[in-house]
Amino acid sequence: MGSVKAELLRLWKWPATWVLIGVWLVMTLTFGYVFNYLALNGGTNTRDLSQQQLISAMQPENVGAAVVRGLPMFGGAIILVLAALAVGSGYGWGTWKTTLTAGPRRVSAMAGTLGALGIVVVLLVALTFVVNLGASITIASLEGWDWSLPGLGVFQALGASLLIAAMWTGFGVFLGVVTKGPALAVGLGLMWAIVTENLLRGVGSLLGPVESLTKVLPGGSAGNLAGAVGGSGAPGVLTDLSGTTAALFLVGYVVFFVGAATLLKVRRDLV
């Protein structure tokens, strides 16, 4: 518990935590509501979306889908950056050395970091939900739509969001530990999340095996889970796999990333 408390304290007071959460909230509001609202009220190009589709996307009852659809790519990239910075920076600052000589076992120290990052990510998803819900209710009220609060299905979307967020967090932690620094971890992570998987999808249209592979890569699995729980209309959202299959792949990635990072942290000399 001491390790989680220590990590929470330092993540809570870290400007980068709030800058990244803030950037994500602005992005999700802008792309999820502001642009759709402007398109609905006089936009000339609605990306082939009918008025009814735009209204539906902004309805409070669909807020779960609004939360999950941003996470496979851009939201995931932001979470990955946060995790990679949180873990990788410790090597440059020498704080891992301080942490590992403070008393807890290495596994406990790592669990503290993962636990605190987990809490921050749950907070990020919760804030995304609250902000999106607030925006959707505001728009629905302004427009005079009949609206209702989201049903129980929202928990499925939020659960999927948390699983996707956990996978990107694990990926960031893994890269931070492997590269022993923030810069390369963030660079490689962003490259993967935003560029590499998309390029592979492009190649996949020419080569069947590559196309099959892209569906189960980290971003692909996240996109398929988001698609399975109702997320649509955002980059990275796919509908090639069932929700269960995508979720199983994501659990596998979480276990692999967290397990490999912890194993490396425990076994590797800190020089």
Partner: peptide, 22 residues
């Protein structure tokens, strides 16, 4: 080999983080 602390935290907060771990 030199102190390893979080640059964005105050001296006291850095010690609080370390104290929590200990």
């Amino acid at each position: 080999e030199g102190p390893g602390f979080y640059p964005y935290l105050s001296g006291r907060d850095n010690l609080r983080v370390h104290a929590a771990r200990r």
